[in-house]
Each structure stands twice: as C-alpha cells, then as structure tokens.
Amino acid sequence: MHILEVSHLTKRYNNFTAVNNISFNILKGELFGFLGPNGSGKTTTINMLTGLAKITSGSIKLLEFDYPHEIKKAQQIIGIVPDESNLYEELDGFGNLCFCASLYGMEKTTREERARQLLGEFDLIGAGNKPFKSYSKGMKRKLTIAAGIIHEPKVLFLDEPTTGIDVASARRIRQLIKKLNKNGTTVFLTTHYIEEAENLCHRVAFIVKGEIIKIGTVSELIQEAQQESIVQFTLAGGADRLQQALREKKPAIFNIEVLSDTVLRVNTPQLISLSPYIKLFEENNLTLYEAKIIRPSLEEVFVKITGIEAEHMKKDREGRKK
C-alpha cells in the first residue's frame, strides 16, 4: 500500500527549476532514501512534501490527503527533522519536546509523559532540564529527531540526519532510525552519505539537478550496475606466481589483480564456478583460506550512474555546513 504518491512534481523559482517533473511512491513501512549532491533538489522536495514550499505543478498525496488543499490534515500525521536543528535555544530539552507536542494538540499529561519517554529512549534524561543551547551537536540532533516523532507520526521526513556530527552520535542516530522504521514508521530520508543509504534504506532514488535519474532497491541498483563478477581469493602466499597460470587457463577473465602476496582478485564477465580455481591452487600447492565475491557498493553504482564522485559530494556538503 502506498502511503505517499508523488506525481510529476515540479518546483520553479522564477527561471530556475529546482525540481523537475519527479514521480515516485513510498510504501507503508518503507525506509526510502533520497540521494543526491548539494543543490540537487532534495530539500526543496522535502519542503514541498511537508508544506513549507508551494508546488509549481504536479501532485502529492499522503494517505488520503491531497496537497495543497489538505496539507494541514497531512501535517498532523507527518514528522519533520530538518537538516539543521531548529528547536528553541532558550527552552530546555523537556520544554522543547512538550512545546512541539502541544503544536499537535497533545494534552499536558500526555505530552509530558511522552517527552520523558523520548528523553529516555534517546539517552537524554540527564540533559532534559538543560537549555538546548548548551547541547552538543549530537545531542541537538537527537533531541530534534525526538521532537519530530513526539506525536508518533506515520511518516517521518529526515533531512540529512547525520551530517556534521561525530561518528558515535551518527551511529546511534542510525540505530534509532532503524528502530523507528522497525516499529512501523515510514521514513523518507535524504542523505549524501551513500553508505548510510545502503545500510538503512529499502529503496533509494538518485536525484541530480532536480531530476530522479534512478530509483530501486539497493540490490536492484547494484545488480543493474554490476557488469562483471569479481572474486577475491585469500591464500597463504604465492599469489603472484598464479597470475600467468590463470591467464593461460581462463581466457574469459577480464583482469587479474594481485593485491599482495596473499590476495588475488579476478574479474570475469559472468558468474564463475569456483571449483577450477580451487583445483588450480591445489596443483600449485597453494593453500586457499577464503574466496569472496566482491559486489560493487552503492557508492560505486552512484558514481557510475551520475558521474559524480561521492567523496566530492560529501566534502561539498560538509564545507557548506561549516
């Protein structure tokens, strides 16, 4: 069942087209990743989906609510975590959560109970009575996520949730996102960390210059980009001696790469049977410890499809945050 249906969505600012005719659907309970470089239209899309930006053309339907007429009804069931924490610096953690809950019409006792519960879940119990301005970046991010789910939304929009925070906090936030999704919350996640999308998302869309250029499950995208099989052998030693022998026996091999005296990588045009290799190692008195199929990462798929270096994309974004 689709919880979000986006059809031919376009956003123009005067002569500039920020989002150009994009269409996608999100299934109930799905964790959907939206990947793209800085300025690709990710935040503009989120802004349209959350009611902060007007739609130039196209349509959005969230559950039974059509945008823009029923946006206020839709906002009741969505949670939003923007790319930068936007809670109130003067309020403490508990006060911020209670205030956010009240915006969704939650009664005093219910919102206080829920705020305490979330402070516990997000390891912020000790910081609940401290002003938000005294929080570290990681704590701010966690509280912002807690504020986004205070009213138990059906769909959560997360805009770059782990950008600019330390590794431990980012790891904890990823765990929390997984847990939220496991508990039934549909998540729309924008990120420029491709490995984050690969680990978290069920499906991913690549957006570049306002257009979705690829959409699918992580394994579908990888499979589509995988035009060769790579097998990595780990031996006790003598990997370099095998290079010539392999070339003679396996003409279909694209490439043989000796990474060290113990590691050898073989590229072939299709899936390969391992038994001839094992036989060959035995004939040459070489001990095989491991044979591993190397799949391309989502990052490699992204680079292949978009031509944009992922590292460049990450640095660009982090530079902008500083």
Binding site: K73, I80, L103
Partner: peptide, 14 residues
C-alpha cells in the same frame, strides 16, 4: 533566522 519559525509553519494549525 533561527529557523524555529519553520517548525510553526509546518505544524497542523492554520
């Protein structure tokens, strides 16, 4: 400026 106003604009109130 602090973007906290956006939170209010995205709340389900008119």
């Amino acid at each position: 400026r602090s973007r906290s106003f956006e939170r209010l604009l995205m709340a389900p109130i008119s």
